[in-house]
Amino acid sequence: MSDIVIDTHNISRVYNPTTIPIYAIRNVHLHIKRGEFTALVGPSGSGKTTLLNLIGGLDKPDEGQIFINGTDITTLSPGKLIDFRLHNIGFVFQSFNLIPVLTARENAEFIMLLQGKSKAERGTRMKQLFNQIDLEDKMDSRPGELSGGQQQRVAVARALASKPQFVLADEPTANLDSKSASNLLDIMDKLNREENITFLFSTHDQRVIDRARRVITLVDGQVATDTNVIDTSAPH
């Protein structure tokens, strides 16, 4: 298997094709390699959410193909696609990621229950993940008892619980204060460096953009710039 986990082939997504067509995404070619830490930026309405939904298999392109680790997800049936997401893609949404009636641990574990993982396996994984997100003492708290930043960290733990190919995060820090945002980025950054987890996240926040090692800018649904940031802090 190649090192490219996300490979979009000339994808387009058009809304209202019959009336006034809106090209939310237009001819986007994109390769993302394993271990990248990429920010998707661009003005409001530029198509960031649309692109993430397409890559995440939540939406289908009107043109083009999307390969995830070699599988063309545009050809999968809706049922297969749900299963594909479960096993291959981790999601962190802007907010309300968690089920309010479950504890932090149960929320993160949920995805492993869906995968049918054993209790022992879940136990070890949860311990490890809550250690990594630095919330071991909050495992049994309900989402309502956690701060917004803590909730997003639990969402990251859930996204990783399934051992996905990569994690997609649509404005994960949008509802957080700057301290919580930088804290969440610290954790994502650490997971990326230490576990080689691939992250693709959209953001408006310059401080978050500054943490990325690759920045893709969308304008009007097209890739305007794609920059690899010279990483001075990298350990190797």
């Binding site: 049922g79 749900i82 997401r85 479960l86 096993h87 309300f96 949920f110 995805i111 869906l114 996204a159």
Partner: peptide, 16 residues
């Protein structure tokens, strides 16, 4: 509505 959509998004089968 949001929560149910999210559950499908993260990979919960509709049958479940």
């Amino acid at each position: 509505k949001y929560e149910l959509g999210m559950l499908v998004a993260i990979g919960m089968k509709k049958s479940r």
